[in-house]
Nucleic acid binder design. Structure first.
Lengths: 222, 222, 222, 222
DNA sequence: AATGAATGAGAATTCATTCAT
DNA sequence: CATGAATGAATTCTCATTCAT
């Protein structure tokens, strides 16, 4: 029961990223990935707490003890899942925002990106929308900073939209970010808990984008 | 080893409230309430899984065993929390929607209602937005039907708005309901995990309403 | 919550003894045996229900959890004790009966065998005569088939005696088997609950054999 | 958890036998009987340990707490069952033995008496042969003296038979008593755990008597 | 006497984690 | 690196018993 580990990016993971592009996945990263992928499957089916470490091990085709060569603890598996994902997501969002286009185009890309990453991956979506809230440790210790960073990126986009005149001045960018996060999370969760049919999230993305963009447009009181 | 209890409103609680206003809280309901209130406090602080039944008992000022006179299990405490709340919420929403006013007014009331019920109750908000997703049993067995009912109510409101011509015909009412739920949930969660300062949720409600109402208004492509 | 396991010889034990003489006790069987032997001691002293699993573990020199690597439950420890014993007993009885000799000789061997296996093992005798009746599960689920098999073996011996003319035709072999079982059980129980002095059971065996053999002999109404 | 109470006939039972013949059962004794009768039913069905005090109460049609007005504890219910029964049995045996007749007649009456008291009462027979061995307290604290007394009565009968010349001199009366007890117990137990069909025990009694009487008869080595 | 709600000690079992091989 | 047997702390829930009514 290792407790109160302050947030740092470093963890048990011994895969000492040897710089360079990860063109060639080394066997270690390979096994780590295999474990994470197995964890997603099992978490989605049984929830974080009901999942036994031995089940993850079995699903990954490794021995129980092997999990601990790549992760500090069961919690750490979930934390890693979260971090791997959100770090990549933030990077992708920043890239999408940095690319050419007006506010609407950038906003649409942001929405599409987030739902697109989950479309066709029902299990991952369930883990992201449900299971990530199941570890108190993750929530209270690791999630906040990265989550705030995520919100900042979106809030920045909206604020820039205001500067450009593409967004009403009387909305709080941060609140829009929180609402958008929530809307996308809610849409993905209901999708995952329902059938999780491929393609539907992409379609939903267009509607959500439209809804928010119209909602943010200047002029004409509601 | 009573398992797989199909969803029914009935639970361990033996207090068969015979309608009428709860003018005179019978001691039983009183104790049940005390336990639920204590559970909210502890769940919010430690999360559902990290919460010990004995902690709830202590916080409620009863013996451990007493919990089991009113609830079937620890899970059932959370389930009850959820049910008590969502049943009341749905009723309140239906009332709010049935009251006079155009679509905009009704929509605003729906939003205000939901955030208003949480404003000033940080702990409850945290339980509702975070902890309710922590019991797999709740999620997979109890939540779905009631949650669907909730979505239906909101979707119906939107669909009626379309009939009235107050809402664009090209949005899916159900998707709007899912988005709105998510947005409100996201706003409440970030509020609760942040300070949870009283009054802020109410203010947020106005902005979220505005955002959605504008987003739903017919005419002028985004 | 694995329940209602139908009777099979297979249990938690993973040690698949591949026949052969146990010349080389594998560590697993070794530990299982250690646990069973410890259980006999503790059951005899405190009774099945008053015995704590932790007491068995302590007496066996293993951790509490280790018990569960070899047995499904506390009940299963008793069940295993019973099965291991009665299976061996039945085999030994069949062997004793198959060996040369007239009915009297075979009957005497059967009696000596049963009391001989307990003589000098007071604790085991107490467990067999008293504690085995303490688990309802054992009694109602596992014991019956094997116990019936035991009765059959003895009844068969008596029936064959009738064929040979060594036993009165007007007794029910099955009833004789039930009576003999009871008599031996009663003698062993009173012996165990009294001092359990070594050698006494053997002596009792001769008298009990004599009593039954004379009782079964044809001719001369009682 | 009242412990180590030395054996005395007195227990919680407040029904202060008011001398006189129990011609008119007072309501108190009535309720005590009701509870005992209910206990027999439940013990037979579920075993002593698996039986809940509340189940006995329910079966007896009284409140849980009422049990404790008539008995000190759950153990005491079983102990009382045992004592009530064995005291009456011993008295009846002594009476049967005191009555006119030769050894054979008296022996037959003794056997008939014991099996006759159980014939047609399957549940009682199960309780007597199985459940009475389930309370360590009963076994180790209360049963021994009364059980010894029972054995003495039978042993005395056999010893007297030897004096009369009706029984071989080379048998131990005490061992015969132990064997007979066991045989009757075994017959009754197998009867109870099997169907427990009425009438069969009486028939068995004749055969068991015959078996033992022939076995005890002097003359002609086995 | 009778009730039954409340108590709280108690115990079987689970399972994350370790570490000898 | 990998394994998986062993550990033992930790926790839910049960149920005999009490006692205010």
């Amino acid at each position: 029961m290792a407790n109160e580990r302050p947030f740092t990016g470093a963890r048990a993971t011994k895969s000492a990223e040897p710089g360079a592009e990860p063109a060639r996945v080394d066997p270690k990263a390979d096994k780590r990935e295999r474990i994470l992928r197995a964890a997603v499957k099992v978490f989605a089916r049984k929830g974080f707490y009901a999942t036994r470490v031995s089940e993850i091990a079995k699903a990954a085709g490794v021995a129980d003890g092997t999990i601990y060569l790549y992760f500090e603890s069961k919690d750490d598996v979930l934390v890693s899942l979260f971090q791997d994902r959100i770090v990549k997501l933030i990077a992708a969002l920043e890239e999408a925002i940095a690319a050419a286009g007006d506010f609407d185009a950038r906003f649409r890309r942001v929405v599409e990106l987030q739902l697109g990453l989950l479309d066709g991956r029902r299990e991952l979506a369930e883990v992201v929308t449900v299971n990530l809230r199941q570890s108190s440790k993750l929530l209270k210790q690791y999630a906040t900073p990265l989550f705030s960073q995520y919100l900042e990126v979106v809030a920045k986009l909206v604020a820039d939209g205001q500067t450009e005149g593409a967004v009403r001045a009387d909305v709080s960018p941060r609140l829009v970010a929180r609402s958008l996060y929530g809307a996308l999370d809610g849409v993905a969760m209901t999708w995952a808990l329902g059938g999780g049919e491929a393609g539907q999230l992409k379609k939903a993305a267009a509607q959500v984008s439209e809804l928010f963009l119209r909602g943010l447009k200047p002029g004409g009181a509601a």
